[in-house]
Design a protein around this nucleic acid. Structure first.
Lengths: 251, 251
DNA sequence: AAGCGAACCAATCTGGTTTTTGTTCACCCC
DNA sequence: GGGGTGAACAAAAACCAGATTGGTTCGCTT
């Protein structure tokens, strides 16, 4: 790297790390000191680059903890996830299909003007992103934004629970699988519909749009699941039942 | 203490500690070894006394942690406490209206025959009860049964959260108030409709019936709330603002 | 004046140690 | 032999000191 250690360079370096590093949104990035060493930039420049990334919502930092990809996990969500324990992807999808449309409707009724502005900003960021992982990032950020703007604590807690489950590791590859079965543009158009309905203060429209969006993803996920089940069956046939079958009962 | 160090003595000693020791239910009692020293009893006796107290629900113990007065704090309880504080009764009702109809629909799809039998039994118990409080008890038991039979963990957790909130003290009088504004028979008829739809494996019917049921209670609760607000206004006018108003801001 | 390096601060994590309840064992008295 | 007794051991949680990490400030250089 003979180029001057400008903030742009550090930024792209970190972005590359995020992208290549299997960004399970809770993924931890190298420390600032390490970034200084690897990029050759002074810490001030590194910090500036990280600050801009944080402002854009791509990463978050916490003193003594580290720098992480994605959005910080709400304590209420992890607590709820602990209470809930493990659950099947289909169950989670059903629950989302139950809760998020209502959240969208409430959001249309109650969100502020600046909430709507932020939603449009999130949608625009998603539009500008190229990488699939980054798109997922903006997607979940938008859903979280809608949930927050609905101003209903119990439902938001339920959403945080689902969001936390979805952030788990085993969901990452599942989403990666389901991504291949859907068109990337479709999701974006649906998002725009949702935000448009919210901005028009149309709760029924927002509910319907969110419902359609989730149903599409639900279908994609189910397709991915059967594909995965097929793989598992193949593996099972290959190994001929040498291990326990606790994870695949009557699937 | 010239009396023999029997379990009774230790028991009364601990009880005195609990009573005099300002037992904020999470209060911590002395360790077993300390109790041995102070009472002169062998550890075995102390443990037996503590075990009986624990069996009676007066205390609870945990390895490595200690012995505490009252009941252990369930995670779902602390979650509910976290959510309950800042959330308005209307919000909780909205959340129920979002989640429980879907639970009823899923229940209609998935519950077993014996689940249905148990629901009918619960409804019959509610029919046979005379006291209003007992009726409420059977009511919540039925709702819990439906939630459990829906076989969807995240939604069931969300329901448990709402149920826990509803069990809080401030909800008790609110329900007592709202009870006067509705007819007791109405709720029973609605319950029968719900169970009938579930028994008929009719998810849409179950969803609609549950929705109607909750809407009726929602209306009763709103009426109770305005009545309560009126009382609060009266009280406020009577006292002319001598105390803090933290509990009634812009109601 | 702006950038840089270093040191320092505060919050967190990490590893080992201690405390506390739970369990087991050999022993003693009736 | 049955039941009680004391001690030691096991397991889980709390506790504490040191290292780690993001956040901040201070001189210094260009």
């Amino acid at each position: 790297m003979t180029a001057p250690p400008t903030a742009i360079l550090v930024r792209s370096h970190v972005l590359a790390l995020i992208r290549s590093g299997r960004l399970g949104p809770g993924n931890r990035l190298p420390t600032e000191r390490v970034l200084c060493e690897t990029t050759g930039a002074p810490r001030r420049v590194v910090r500036r680059a990280l600050a801009s990334l944080e402002a854009e919502g791509l990463i978050w930092r916490h003193q003594g903890k580290g720098t992480f990809a994605g959005q910080p996990a709400e304590p209420i969500g992890v607590l709820a996830a602990e209470v809930n324990g493990p659950s099947h992807p289909i169950e989670v999808m059903e629950a989302r299909l139950c809760i998020e449309p209502e959240l969208a409707a409430l959001c249309a009724l109650r969100c502020s003007a600046e909430d709507i502005q932020r939603m449009w900003a999130l949608a625009r960021h998603q539009y500008e992103a190229e990488d699939d992982d980054v798109i997922e990032l903006w997607d979940s950020a938008l859903h979280r934004m809608i949930a927050k703007s609905a101003r209903n604590r119990p439902l938001q807690t339920a959403f945080a629970l689902l969001d936390e489950i979805r952030a788990t590791a085993e969901w990452q590859d599942l989403r990666a699988l389901s991504r291949s079965t859907r068109s990337l543009g479709e999701s974006r158009a649906q998002h725009q519909q949702i935000i448009a309905a919210i901005a028009a203060r149309d709760p029924d429209g927002a509910r319907a749009a969110m419902c359609a969006h989730l149903m599409a993803r639900h279908a994609a996920m189910e397709a991915a699941l059967v594909a995965l089940a097929g793989e598992a069956a193949q593996a099972f046939r290959a190994e001929q039942g040498t291990d326990d079958n606790q994870g695949a009962e009557h699937a």
